[in-house]
Design a protein around this nucleic acid. Sequence first.
DNA 1: CCTCGAATGATAACGGTGTTAACATACGAG
DNA 2: CTCGTATGTTAACACCGTTATCATTCGAGG
Lengths: 222, 222
Amino acid sequence: MPEEKQPKRPRARPVQKKPVGRYHHGDLRRALLGAALVLVEREGKAALTLRAAARLLGVSEAAPYRHFADKEALLVAVAEDGLRTLATFLREAAAPHEAEPARRFQALGVAYVTFATVHPAHFRVMFTAVPAEQSAYPSLAEAYEGVFSLLIDAIVACQHRGLVRKSDPRALALAAWSTVHGLADLVVGGQVPRLGLDPANPAQLAAMVTERLFVGLSLPAK
Amino acid sequence: MPEEKQPKRPRARPVQKKPVGRYHHGDLRRALLGAALVLVEREGKAALTLRAAARLLGVSEAAPYRHFADKEALLVAVAEDGLRTLATFLREAAAPHEAEPARRFQALGVAYVTFATVHPAHFRVMFTAVPAEQSAYPSLAEAYEGVFSLLIDAIVACQHRGLVRKSDPRALALAAWSTVHGLADLVVGGQVPRLGLDPANPAQLAAMVTERLFVGLSLPAK
DNA sequence: CCTCGAATGATAACGGTGTTAACATACGAG
DNA sequence: CTCGTATGTTAACACCGTTATCATTCGAGG
């Protein structure tokens, strides 16, 4: 039984309000992002609003427009932050299994699903509240790539050990990403509990699904 | 190469406007659902609004509240309709392969992803714009089960032929659902094109991913 | 056929949201 | 010290969800 570990945000971001009496805030953009993260984690995606974030900081409700072109820009920033947090969490989960690519692979899958269950609203923002055309946000694309590259690396490592067939790693990584992402999305969407399949242990489900996935990526059985 | 087939709505639903001069509409609930479907397919999820649906029918903007308790109820109706359409589409895709469970299984996966790419906004509504607590909407839960049961049946059929290991079919079906659902969600979210992985042929990707998946569900290679 | 309660639609209003324009203040380079 | 610019405020607009109140129509029972 692997150790359960809660994903934790690397550095605390204490949403500092505007100093009373001061006209300018100092770093409103960062503060707005912090407020948005608090809103999405505590109250859910629907509560994530430009005006609410401004109110939380004691600043006027139109102030955010000096730092974000529109609401979509804030959502993108929130998504990007979540993706980098996820990447860090995945790296930490994989670190103990550096020498065993198969275990590392499974640890990544379990951690991906665990992150989604611990931060469901944030997870949804990362993947649904963002434009399909992300060419306007290059750093967002980088953040996605940062997560995806962890899967690719794990698969390449498995290939070097002869544990995984030698197809295009990006294609295999897409299959892997699809599997863990789909499970995460179904869990977040409340599908899994309704299926009579383990009300509250997503890590175990993730381990099972990841194991089936890994077998599928194996070398052809001769 | 499997035949490409566009998912088509079984019966046309021609969003009939209110007869001019008439005070009552006749079947406003059904018409509102039709208008909502038009909006979500043509303009996307953001355009799906109670007031816009009412306007489309030439009816007052508060009229929907006589037939839907709130916006969530309309979203649930849209999601449910989409799920039943998806189930029909999956059945049609599987029908030609009744005798070959492995092919049937793959056809289901490809069709699932194809549906999502043809109706991306509707797909998103089916799985993201709906409350995680769906106990208040029993018919919605039925609609999900109607899709899920197709996967279970396909897996059981494979098990009877000795093509798939004899674990709990619901667990295996969850693994399968996760895989195709995850791929569909990533494609709809615009991730796949950015990965340099085939800009516009999701069916081919789905076939590859489904094949890896199927191997993973196989009997242990002795 | 008539009556009358119930079902359905219309109108108007409230608060919340994204967004913008016009104005006010503070910062920082020269 | 000065002044352009960045940053924050105020006020307003349009749109949305939602509700209360009023108007019209339907249909069951006499």
